[in-house]
């Protein structure tokens, strides 16, 4: 889809250079993360092993760059800072849902009421919608089966699980998370 507004020639140049800068930041962050992973995994500091690491990291970043997978979906550094709030929220949601499902399973009468429901995904980017669907799947008691036309098809185990998804709290949280992403330029 992309933006239909024509920002004009100068703005085009500016946008191009801004994208170039963002691309450099993405390469830089990937390099740092890969280097840290290499060090944490090997914990050897002999010149030979570190040299292998440098070669591996540079090759990986260069190839990723060539394959054009270091884009705002592959390395969305813009939302990294927001993960600090999202991850604790996610852990608490998952734990709450786990206790709910555990209670249902251990109940002698097992009062489940499986159902299908449609949850609206109001995220503007594909990445945001995928995060939304994965968040729903990760909380036990709900599984996302399909995602199309901004709607997630969800299988829920009980009415409680349904209300949890339909309340829109998840949708709000993911919308806030993805609001850090730049304006999408997908087709």
């Amino acid at each position: 889809m992309g933006s239909i507004r024509d920002p004009g020639f100068g703005a085009g140049i500016f946008r191009h250079s801004a994208m170039f800068a963002a691309g450099m930041v993405r390469s830089l962050i990937t390099t740092i993360v890969l280097a840290l992973v290499w060090i944490a995994w090997s914990w050897h500091f002999e010149p030979l092993v570190v040299g292998f690491g440098v070669v591996a990291v540079v090759l990986t970043v260069a190839l990723s760059k060539r394959m054009n997978i270091l884009d705002e979906e592959g390395e969305p550094f813009e939302i990294n800072i927001r993960l600090i709030r999202y991850i604790p929220w996610l852990v608490i949601e998952v734990l709450k849902a786990n206790f709910q499902v555990a209670k249902l399973i251990l109940d002698p009468e097992m009062p489940i009421s499986p159902r299908l429901l449609k949850v609206r995904a109001n995220q503007r980017t594909t990445l945001g919608q995928v995060i939304h669907a994965n968040t729903i799947t990760l909380t036990p008691g709900t599984i996302s089966l399909d995602l199309r036309d901004n709607t997630i098809l969800v299988h829920a185990l009980s009415a409680e699980a349904q209300h949890q998804d339909e309340s829109g709290r998840v949708d709000e949280m993911i919308s806030w998370l993805e609001s850090g992403l730049p304006e999408g330029h997908e087709e």
Partner: peptide, 17 residues
């Protein structure tokens, strides 16, 4: 749990918590 989809929810408990 009685059927395929609900069993997925049961497996989800092992996967996460």
């Amino acid at each position: 749990l009685p059927d395929f989809y609900t069993r997925c929810h049961g497996a989800g408990v092992t996967d996460t918590a």
